[in-house]
């Protein structure tokens, strides 16, 4: 920016303080929340390939948000609808598949996968009949886009609270990696702890989706990669996931804004473009 006129510099500073800084802050918090939710879901399902959207959260949020967009509602309403859709998906998953959670997480997993498939079909239906001029906005929501993420203080508060709550469970989560019977024999109340994981991961995911749409890949790749790199204990894994997830999303968002300037890309495209090669490289490590 050297050599620019004073008025330009003022404008640049204003843009930095009022537009860029909040967006970077929101991006970091969203990435942290998604990676944290992914780590919790992987422990809940004892599967390092689990991710925040496994229970149909993105589908439920996407469906209601798209219906709102098709009806021409403004963003705050769409955001509220997305949040409601997330809660709807979580409630349905819990009601349909949650009864055996103390012993077996498979029914919950199946219910979530089925819900995600159902919501996916309905989303495709909405997309195919929606007015053409609304389609780009819808696609950006489905891919995830931080242009909407206006409430950085809320996201940061949520991130810090969720991280503190998850860390309070850390030792119990280590034990929960064992079979449910073994974990119970060591004194862990399996069902309440699993429901706490479900609620915590669900809340983190629902909040992010309502702020920035369904940003993909961060919630799967970050915790999975960290586990592969040797972060097995939750006391380290959880804060590391929040840090790495936040950093990755800040980087992806910076690229999303600049790669085809002055136009922007949905940030979800970038998280996948950065994440896929990283993941493949990790897979090749011995």
């Amino acid at each position: 920016m050297a050599g620019t006129l004073p008025a330009d510099r003022e404008l640049a500073q204003q843009i930095l303080a009022e537009l860029r800084a909040p967006r970077v802050a929101a991006a970091f918090a969203c990435g942290g929340l998604l990676a944290l939710a992914g780590a919790l879901m992987q422990t809940l399902f004892r599967n390092p390939l689990a991710e925040p959207y496994l229970l149909g959260v993105s589908g439920g949020a996407g469906l209601l948000a798209l219906l709102g967009m098709a009806a021409g509602l403004a963003w705050p309403w769409v955001s509220g609808l997305a949040f409601a859709g997330s809660l709807l998906a979580l409630t349905l998953a819990a009601a349909l598949g949650g009864r055996m959670l103390a012993r077996d997480h498979t029914p919950l997993l199946l219910a979530g996968v089925m819900l995600a498939a159902g919501f996916g079909a309905l989303i495709a239906l909405v997309l195919s009949v929606a007015p053409a001029e609304r389609l780009p906005g819808m696609l950006f929501f489905l891919m995830g886009d931080l242009a909407w993420a206006g409430n950085a203080p809320l996201l940061w508060t949520a991130l810090l609270l969720a991280l503190a709550a998850a860390l309070a469970l850390a030792r119990r989560l280590d034990v929960l990696q064992l079979s449910p019977l073994k974990a119970a024999s060591l004194g862990v109340a399996v069902a309440p702890t699993r429901w706490a994981l479900f609620g915590l991961a669900g809340a983190c995911t629902a909040l992010v989706v309502a702020q920035a749409g369904s940003i993909g890949f961060v919630g799967l790749m970050v915790p999975h990669a960290l586990r592969r790199l040797g972060f097995a204990g939750h006391r380290l894994l959880l804060p590391a996931a929040a840090l790495a997830g936040g950093s990755l999303l800040v980087l992806a968002d910076a690229l999303a804004r600049t790669v085809i300037e002055p136009r922007e890309l949905p940030v979800g495209v970038l998280t996948a473009l950065i994440g896929v090669p990283l993941m493949l490289w990790l897979l090749r490590r011995p």
């Binding site: 280590d174 990696q177 064992l178 019977l181 024999s185």
Partner: peptide
């Protein structure tokens, strides 16, 4: 007071042997 060695495997555990063994001390 009571410990159980179940038959089911510990397939989901990604940590080291030492970390796995140390979980027995959770109570």
């Amino acid at each position: 007071h009571i410990g159980l060695l179940p038959q089911a495997d510990e397939g989901g555990f990604l940590g080291s042997v030492a970390a796995f063994v140390a979980l027995g001390h959770y109570p």
